[in-house]
Design a protein around this nucleic acid. Structure first.
Length: 464
RNA sequence: GCUUCCUUAGCUCAGCCGGUUAGAGCAUCUGACUGUUAAUCAGAGGGUCCCUGGUUCGAGCCCAGGAGGGAGCGCCA
């Protein structure tokens, strides 16, 4: 019996019946009587399961004792049209081997649905559930689509460093990377920790963004993107933040804000369309189980243009809104979640791109508008998610950039390498950052970002 | 970090005004059933009521502190 293993997905789609097959997977359920037993198997290749039928002449009930929920099994048999009603095909089992037992008394997953909070505590086993199988397959498809899109559009994938020697990237608190002994680190004469004796001879951190390095690459290769892990040591306790997450950051030389928005919109639409086309079963399952509006919302994103408006226009809309807000709206302050939600979910009822924010509330590298008050920033806001993309046209003028850095107390000496792009052959360029988990959150309709990454990292939690 | 809610069987939860031996559904185990579809039916086992301290004749229930979890807010992607 040296039959190659077939996936459940390929067997369910097979037109070729009455042939010998081998399937390997994990038992989801076994039921029946002393004459016939039905074994339901999933192997992760698809949301769906295949049913193996074990007749008592070949398999007395005692012999199937270990074929319990959660056990890994190999089943040889004949792929046949099902006699039952719930499925088109099934396997008439000839031989069943238990590859790995799962004690029903202690196996934490049961046939019945359970809470996402409980599954978060057993994140090492939750991929075996329908929900997380679906989420992880969709996550894969979206990651693949990211590379597909950029490759098709002439972008180069650039690997920016995970460990960074700069702590001035301006995107939040960083995790320190060091090999110095925490109890007795070497000290300088002045008593400070002597990082010159550390592994890299200086203070190093985990990256909070690959953008600055991405800009360097874009100023040579033209169109680039990064797609890698990113770390923020911020005490953010929300359903939309992680301490470790994956970020996609395209950067394009010669692009200005308008083209940056075009790229963001086309890119997001492509990703959502890709998932709708490739992950129909998984999305249908999530739609039915969690969010009846999911598929409609995804189609609406694919079919409708995003609403573009400036920060100033948004403030005017919010000020004349009938709705009362907890926080007042005032030009110059950043918009609150409730304001963004109003614009996206109530006023426009579609994704919104907000541009030209006051310079005071945005990063130092964003290009100053001619009025000197606003910068060429853009935030893409999605229903239920909030900010899914943050980006800008970058300040390419050396004098203006260094002036902004001085105003915002960004140490220019540490970013001298970055300033070289403005010294030598500077040019307009623009880019943005897309939080990959926020994209997966939107596409799957999950409510908590901790449920769209296999092993979530957040304050007080680094299990597994 | 702030606000607020929650923590009772493996899971999801109920538990009245503080009062005898803490309950249900599902799961598990045993049995029944000739093709089941989250199979069904019958029975059984299963509890540190999150922890610590307090009030009380008596605490799952009231009080204080702590731990863990959810939701919202802030920071942002």
């Amino acid at each position: 019996m040296s039959l190659p293993r077939s996936t459940v997905q390929s067997l369910l789609a097979s037109q070729e019946l009455d042939r010998d097959v081998l399937v390997k997977g994990w038992v989801r359920s076994r039921r029946g009587n002393k004459y016939v037993q039905f074994i339901i198997v999933n192997d992760g290749s698809t949301l769906h399961t295949i049913q193996a039928v074990a007749n008592a002449e070949l398999f007395p009930e005692e012999s199937l004792k270990d074929v319990a929920n959660g056990a890994a099994v190999a089943i040889w048999g004949r792929l046949v049209a099902s006699q039952g009603k719930g499925q088109a095909v099934e396997i008439q089992a000839a031989e069943i081997t238990v590859l790995g037992k799962a004690d029903p008394e202690t196996y934490p997953l049961q046939k019945k649905a359970t809470s996402l909070e409980f599954l978060r505590e057993i994140a090492h086993l939750r991929p075996r559930t329908n929900t997380f199988g679906a989420v992880l397959r969709i996550r894969h498809a979206l990651a693949f689509a990211v590379h597909q899109y950029f490759n098709d559009h002439g972008f180069f994938y650039v690997h920016t460093p995970i460990i960074t020697g700069s702590d001035a990237e301006g995107a939040g608190q960083m995790f320190r990377v060091t090999t110095l002994p925490p109890e007795h680190p070497p000290r300088t004469a002045a008593g400070a920790v002597d990082y010159s004796q550390d592994f890299f001879g200086k203070q190093t951190n985990l990256t909070v963004s690959g953008q600055l390095e991405g800009e360097l690459a874009a100023m040579a290769l033209g169109s680039i993107y990064t797609f890698g892990p990113t770390f923020r040591a911020e005490n953010s306790n929300t359903a939309r933040h992680l301490a470790e997450f994956w970020m996609i950051e395209p950067e394009v030389a010669f692009n200005e804000l308008e083209e940056n928005m075009d790229l963001a919109e086309d890119f997001l639409r492509y990703l959502v369309r890709y998932a709708l086309e490739r992950c129909a079963d998984d999305l249908q399952f999530l739609n039915d189980q969690y969010d009846k509006d999911l598929l409609g919302r995804l189609r609406s994103v694919v079919e409708n243009d995003f609403q573009r408006l400036t920060y100033t226009e948004a403030v005017e809309i919010l000020k004349s809104a009938k709705q009362k807000f907890e926080f007042p709206v005032d030009w110059g302050t950043d918009l609150q979640s409730e304001h963004e939600r109003y614009l996206v979910e109530k006023h426009f009822e579609k994704p919104v791109i907000l541009t030209n924010y006051p310079k005071e509330i945005k990063a130092f590298y964003m290009k100053l508008d001619d009025d000197g008050r606003t910068v060429r920033a853009m935030d893409v806001l999605f229903p239920g998610i909030g900010e899914i993309i943050g980006g800008s046209q970058r300040e390419e003028d050396y004098a203006k950039l260094t002036a902004r850095m001085a105003e915002m107390h960004v140490p220019a000496d540490e970013l001298d390498w970055y300033l070289d792009t403005r010294r030598f052959g500077t040019a307009p360029h623009a880019g943005f950052g897309l939080g990959f988990e926020r994209l997966v959150l939107f596409v799957t309709g999950m409510g908590n970002i901790r449920d769209v990454i296999p092993f979530p990292r957040y304050p007080k939690n680094a299990a597994f």
